[in-house]
Write a protein that binds this DNA or RNA. Structure first.
Length: 489
RNA sequence: GGUCGGUUUGCCGAGUGGCUAGGCGCUGGUCUGCAAAACCAGUUACAGCGGUUCGAAUCCGCUACCGACCUCCA
């Protein structure tokens, strides 16, 4: 499979040409959410980044198996592996079954992602459904001598591992440095070293989520699920692993160690990490408490929001920055995205009404090439959007007849916009669905027709009154030569 | 403290040696009964200092500031 796609590989800190292990198939794994709260803007960025990768690889002709997990067990509340399971904490607070909490937030996550036009992955495995696989991996790691059991819990032995394999390769850390920065063991801990992490944790009797094992009734460690599930569905080696940059250490580092220890080799060819969304220069995250959920954005229901922002505006906003850059949230930036998106989508809608000529005065081939190059360069959606918006000018001139285009060239132009804007970037024309909306539309059209009659008979007083009242309702009237168009603000 | 990254015009944000990024905003114009919308045109930058070079936002060094990770986090 020939392409010129280059990926920035976190492992090597370089852009590398993409070569699939088993073309035309590509195995892609991305770390999904822990479902104990509503998804926020940061989750949207992660999901959209790898949604673009999923779509783009398919656009290039690959057959992609995209696995994105749901973490519904195992993440602990604090360090030292002594905390409570996050899901369980939430369940107690809300007096719900843990699985009820999981289902609730998972449903909401799916609704949010659907709204953002994020494609569902090929497989969406849940940690709780792969306890057996995780236990099997623990056995392999123990057999290889890289894990030890203490009081029914099993820990990964980082020091033992580091003697034969460099631990910290992905995040650029050294064990010695890590050790000097790790809080001293208080003597109570079961772990041999502060760097060791839990593979299996014995549960106390009150712990609701627990499963039997040869070591104890307990639950799997936090990093284990991704190793076990990616191997199950993508094999011991696969092409791309993605996730938020905040998971780089320790999560992904531990994942590599688990794979090497258990299966004897590293699984991943390319590691990709999306950067964070910031707000006022600071990372937006659950632990900072400065996040805005997607529902709040869609509804405009948050103190920091001056208005509601549609899912496509959010998607466009995120795609206007490169995925490895931080992206700063602000109302001003969101509003700018909203307008830019409309400009782009309106132009695409205009393409069908362009008339062709015998010759072309516009250069479509160059645009086509530059768009491809932008995406080939580590998925630079920001550049791609810039190019597509630059072409909007040309589309307008073609529509007005100021430039000419041959039929074949027009087909090419349409293909550029339809495939990049709709298929790869996943942007959609806003839907006007529902009977109520239909009636509303018809009513407004009727009123505007009446106003047009008034204008024709030069009764501007009536015409202005109608327009003013519509404006007060939040409907913008746009007069054209033949009638009028309208828009709800 | 350790490791890594960032600092681009009023705002967001591309850009790794010479070629207009782009969007928003702002100013002017076209259209229009007027207004809005739409469209067209114009608009400004590269944290500071020093160095390399014919030429630097882009490479190197120093300084300042900001952030991320080092504990769960997309």
């Amino acid at each position: 499979m020939i392409n010129n796609f280059h990926i920035y590989n976190t492992l090597t800190r370089k852009k590398e040409p993409f070569e699939a292990l088993n073309p035309p198939k590509v195995g892609l794994y991305a770390c999904g959410p822990t479902v104990y709260g509503d998804a926020h803007l940061g989750h949207a960025r992660q999901a959209i980044t790898f949604d673009i990768l999923f779509r783009y690889l398919q656009h290039l002709g690959y057959k992609v198996r995209y696995v994105r997990n749901i973490t519904d067990v195992g993440h602990l509340e604090n360090d030292a592996d002594e905390g409570e399971d996050k899901i369980q904490v939430k369940a107690r607070l809300e007096s719900l079954e843990p699985m009820e909490v999981v289902q609730h937030y998972m449903n909401r996550y799916h609704m949010n992602m659907d709204a953002l036009n994020v494609l569902r992955p090929s497989i969406e495995p849940r940690a709780s459904g792969h306890i057996i696989e995780q236990q099997e991996l623990i056995v392999k790691i123990m057999d290889a001598g890289y894990a030890y059991e203490v009081n029914g819990s099993v820990y990964f032995d980082v020091n033992a591992y580091n003697e034969t394999h460099p631990y910290g390769q992905l995040s650029g850390r050294k064990v010695e440095d890590l050790l000097s920065n790790t809080r001293a063991l208080d003597g109570q801990s079961e772990k041999k070293s502060g760097l060791d992490f839990a593979l299996w944790k014995k549960a106390d009797p009150l712990h609701i989520m627990q499963w039997p094992s040869k070591w104890s009734d307990g639950y799997p460690g936090w990093h284990l699920e991704c190793s076990a599930m990616s191997t199950k569905y993508l094999g011991e080696q696969f092409d791309i692993h993605g996730g938020g940059i905040d998971l780089l250490f320790p999560h992904h580092e531990c994942e590599i160690a688990q794979n090497v220890a258990g299966y004897g080799k590293a699984a991943v060819r390319y590691w990709m990490h999306n950067n964070m969304i910031t707000i006022g220069g600071q990372k937006m995250g659950r632990s900072f408490g400065n996040f805005i959920t997607l529902d709040q954005l869609f509804e405009g229901d948050h103190a920091l929001l001056e208005q509601a922002y549609g899912p496509m505006t959010i998607r466009f906003f995120i795609l206007q920055a490169h995925y490895r850059s931080t992206l700063d949230f602000s109302n001003e930036a969101l509003k700018a995205s909203e307008k830019g998106l409309i400009r782009l989508l309106n132009a695409v809608a205009t393409l069908d009404s362009i008339k062709t000529s015998d010759t072309s005065s516009v250069d479509v081939a160059t645009l086509e090439e530059r768009c491809s190059q932008a995406m080939e360069d580590d998925m630079n959606t920001a550049k791609l959007i810039g190019l597509l918006l630059g072409g909007v000018n040309i589309i307008h001139k073609l529509a007005e007849g100021k430039e000419s285009i041959a039929e074949k060239e027009l087909e090419k132009l349409k293909n550029i916009y339809f495939s990049w804007v709709y298929s790869v970037l996943g942007l959609e024309q806003p839907e006007e669905s529902g009977k109520a909306n239909e009636i509303t539309g018809d009513l407004i059209t009727m009123i505007l027709n009446l106003r047009n009659d008034a204008k024709s008979s030069r009764d501007f007083e009536t015409a202005d009154r109608i327009r003013k009242e519509l404006t007060n309702m939040g409907i913008t009237v746009k007069d054209r030569k033949d009638g009028a168009d309208w828009e709800i603000n």
